[in-house]
Simulated assay, not measured.
Amino acid sequence: MRVPFVKMHGLGNDFIVLDARAGGVPAMDARLAAALADRKTGIGCDQLILIEPSELATFRMRIFNADGSEVEACGNATRAVGLLHGAEATIETLGGLLKAAPADGGIAVDMGEPRFDWQAIPLAYAMDTLTMPVGWEDLDAPAAVNVGNPHVVFFVPDCGAVEVERLGPLIEHDPLFPARINVNIATVASRSHIRLRVWERGAGETRACGTGACATAIAAMRRGLVDRQVTVSLAGGDLAIGWGADNRITMTGPAVESFRGTFDAADYGVAG
């Protein structure tokens, strides 16, 4: 059974997109998702995106990290499927309903409202999520926010000097975070500009993370470090993040289709 796919990326955060609305796509599980995501023996990606029919929205989007774990939200992937759709759409995700539409600068996504309660992150026990009384070596006093998936945000003088590859997995798997956590290391450059690196839960350090940019911007806004409209610069490029008076987050940025192809499901142990 040959299965069509679209390879896409948002600022270098890359995806395999499978459209299951018309059938012809094998049932997805952690093993198959991880096999397809493998960059040596599969197609290769940070996340695998499965588009399915929805009774609540234009379509449903399921998101699998490179390790096969299914997660709630991905801002860059939302822009990618918005680009594929080519028109305004509502998108059902495990993290809630999102909206995507063409805009100047690419695709604009309504990411919904941020959540700050410790149980919504979730954390293992109650604490202030604006300035958490915890730390890992030189990284301390982070903020936590859920923007469809869980994030912790550290503000440092120079995010480029942090050993993200070493500290990222240490924090991601800390017992404080029962659902694991996405780790954001940020430097505030001005009232309108943040530099950011992200260790993504289940994927490692990525060139861009849309939800990480949203979470970091919101954390900086809550602390009064930046204005309510800010540019977040990641290794892959820039995202514009706004937090409106209606408490909703808007993320705007590019998405790109790289190529299309097919794979033989039998090569991954899936019967035709």
Rank of each mutant, 00 (worst) to 15 (best):
H85L: 13
F5T: 07
P178G: 02
I181K: 10
G244I: 00
G253I: 15
A27W: 01
A141K: 11
T93G: 08
V134D: 11
I16W: 12
L18M: 08
M28T: 08
P4N: 15
R195H: 14
W199R: 02
G105R: 01
T131V: 15
N13H: 09
G148E: 09
L32S: 02
G204W: 03
Q47S: 06
I194T: 05
A37S: 14
A126D: 13
V109N: 01
T58W: 01
T90G: 08
V198K: 04
R166T: 07
V6Y: 00
R180E: 14
F259A: 04
A124M: 11
V156I: 13
A208C: 10
G272E: 15
M127W: 03
H151Q: 10
I185K: 00
G160N: 12
R197V: 14
E55N: 12
L225Q: 04
H9N: 11
L239A: 14
L56N: 02
E52M: 11
A240G: 04
Q47F: 11
T90H: 08
I49K: 04
I194K: 00
N184L: 07
D267R: 07
E113P: 07
R195S: 15
E205S: 06
T231Q: 03
R21T: 12
H151G: 04
C214T: 12
F154Q: 02
E205L: 06
M1N: 08
V256A: 03
V226H: 03
V147N: 02
R248L: 10
P157Y: 14
H173V: 01
G236F: 00
I249G: 02
A213S: 15
P4E: 13
F155A: 10
R201T: 12
G212E: 13
I249W: 09
D246Y: 06
E88S: 08
S190C: 11
G68Y: 00
E200W: 00
V81R: 14
Q119V: 12
T129C: 13
D267P: 05
C74G: 11
G261V: 01
G112T: 05
I194A: 00
L36T: 12
D14F: 14
H85Q: 13
L239D: 10
P254E: 15
D29P: 04
G12A: 05
G86I: 09
A235F: 10
L98H: 02
N13T: 14
C74W: 04
V25N: 04
F5P: 11
E55Y: 05
V71P: 09
D19W: 08
A217S: 03
W136Q: 00
I107A: 06
I49M: 11
A37Y: 09
M251L: 09
I63L: 10
S258H: 00
A255W: 15
G75N: 06
L234S: 01
V145C: 01
A22V: 05
P142W: 05
T211S: 15
L225W: 01
G212S: 12
A27L: 05
R223I: 08
S54P: 02
T252H: 05
H173N: 11
